[in-house]
Design a protein around this nucleic acid. Structure first.
Lengths: 343, 343
DNA sequence: AAAATTTCAGAAACCGGTTGCCGACTCAAG
DNA sequence: CTTGAGTCGGCAACCGGTTTCTGAAATTTT
């Protein structure tokens, strides 16, 4: 059997070394060891080196609890998803985690699952743990009441936003994204454009629909049909296209409020003998790779750049922690990704 | 303007109260306050109550750094995804987070992004933060080298597993899942069953394929064709079905290694005029709602019950933290979800 | 009424680090 | 040889709690 590393008593893993053990090994006092390890104070080079190699030898890692106790900072932030962690939260969280990790911050993950009680529970937990800041995210872009009043630490809302205009929120410019989609369809010669989207009670659905209609009006056009509100599902995309075909309304493009709807639309169009993009051009929203690339043909779609959004939000949180808050609502542009469905 | 809560100086948010402030307000010593708040020691009921209401009044939350400094426990665990957080990690993480949150544990989120250096960086960070345990997850079920040797805290591998058989790993019984899929097809009268799956270098692909072939052999049958390895994509599902049809091999069922492949297969079958499930029954793997439900017809699929897997892993970690480790590899059954594609 | 016992709260050590301050020592200048 | 300046390292307080120990006051026993 090969010799164990790091632990003198096999089977019982080494417990972390403390600074006093390092000091003892180096033959100095605890305070001196601390100075040596942090480059503070004035020490002889030889002494400093002795401490450093003692620390190395013991695999010393300072106990963060002790450090934060006297610095008052924990180098930790909390990330609360108000609703379930899902497709939208992931890129957001990854972006945020990426930006924070680079700043040597650790991230507490809290999944409130649409439950206000869990949300408050997590908030209390995070405050008790003295996190340096909190990022609040959610599945919908709709504004929500602030997570707490007069919190002792900065809070940034990402994707979702706060109803308090003084809170810092970072949101995608959905209206701008919808306008880009319509502009692209216009630029490729389409004139009879329909819009299928999710439930009318969803903020995203109405914002995108209004922006699309508005952009058409600026071009002197009416939509091919009134925006059709339904669900964020393929089934609704299929159904809506069948309804549209049933009315006999002529249309040469469909802008959909989500990639799932667009994919359902593509299937229904092809089943009805309409070719995409020959007869009808198709644009989705979200640029969800699985849907947009799995679709036949691959789907032109609006990307909200959620990972960049998360990174931005994290950056603003870090700035706020360092005393430079960015209050207010910040919008980030969407990007149109062009693929074969409009080529 | 409504009065501010919690902070006497508007604009400058209250900073958290300490136990000495509570003690001062209650007119007792710090030690007594501590006992009152934790139900220790013997105090007069009136004294205890006085402290409790002082704490209430100040919104006191004990500083966790201070608590963990003398308990030696942080009530925190780290969750490292060795590769990018994705579709598989999410339910795992949610299950784990759920089980840990109930035990009042907080979770550090670490996304190593397929980078061994980041992985070791996160490991050091977690050890420095003195987490009570670590959960390691990944996108693939393939075994991987232990994340560290002789760590001072318990580690549980979830979904992914460790090559060291003494490490605690919790994995789905993919072979069993594949057998269930084949059994279901046999039970519904299918005899010429083909198998399409992902890359041969993927552990999951080969395990599922071998199990399927084995189960067929037990029924005295050969597969309709040799298992076809490709990619985990719809495009491959379509292509493979076209290849299968091209050879003229007769088949009345296709078991696919993923829902994406199955969905591509469904599209290609229908495009070729084969009806699902009339002519060909179809079974997927993963039970990914978006794919399985978006497919026409909805897809029968094998569910690895990842959320339950995450919960189990978290439970084992908690047990290990409390001194009752569960070394070794633990498999959890998969569940077959029957829908119209095999009805 | 004195002694023994019990009740209850405070003082102080401790967890593992950081940091300000002070004193010991070295060395060069007077 | 004395003195002043400059190096360098230790002492001790502190961060915010927990816990042990101790002793004063209140109560019971004799």
């Amino acid at each position: 059997m090969p010799p164990r590393k790091l632990s003198e008593t096999p089977g019982a893993p080494a417990k972390p070394a403390t600074i006093s053990e390092v000091a003892l090994l180096a033959g100095v006092s605890v305070g001196t060891a601390s100075k040596a390890l942090n480059g503070r104070g004035s020490l002889r080079a030889e002494t400093r080196q002795r401490v450093l190699s003692a620390a190395e030898q013991l695999g010393f890692q300072p106990n963060r609890a002790a450090v934060s106790l006297n610095s008052g900072r924990t180098y930790t932030v909390g990330m609360i998803t108000t609703d379930t962690i899902g497709r939208f939260s992931i890129p957001l969280m990854m972006g945020a985690e990426d930006a924070l990790g680079a700043g040597e911050m650790s991230v507490f993950l809290c999944d409130a699952r649409d439950d206000p009680i869990r949300e408050q529970y997590y908030l209390r937990t995070l405050l008790s743990r003295r996190v340096d800041g909190i990022i609040v995210t959610g599945r919908r872009t709709q504004a929500r009441p602030p997570i707490g009043a007069d919190l002792p630490i900065p809070v940034v809302y990402a994707f979702i936003s706060s109803t308090d205009p003084h809170d810092c929120s970072v949101v995608p410019d959905e209206a701008g994204g919808a306008r880009k989609a319509v502009e692209h369809l216009l630029a490729t010669g389409r004139r009879r454009i329909a819009h299928l989207t999710g439930p009318e009670r969803h903020h995203s659905a109405t914002v995108r629909a209004s922006a699309a209609v508005e952009r058409l009006a600026e071009a002197g056009l009416d939509p091919a049909a009134a925006p059709m509100f339904g669900e964020w599902s393929e089934a609704w995309g299929r159904q809506a296209v069948r309804m549209l075909l049933g009315t006999g309304t002529p249309f040469d493009a469909v802008f959909c409020g989500s990639d799932q709807i667009a994919r359902g639309a593509a299937d229904a169009l092809q089943a009805a003998g309409r070719r995409v993009p020959g007869d009808v051009a198709l644009v989705g929203f979200d640029n969800w790779d699985v849907m947009a690339l799995g679709c036949q043909p691959p789907l032109t779609s609006v990307d909200m750049e959620l990972e960049a959004l998360g990174r931005t939000a994290a950056g603003m949180l870090l700035a706020a922690i360092n005393g430079e808050p960015s209050p207010g609502r910040h919008t980030r542009p969407c990007r149109l990704v062009i693929r074969d469905s409009t080529a």
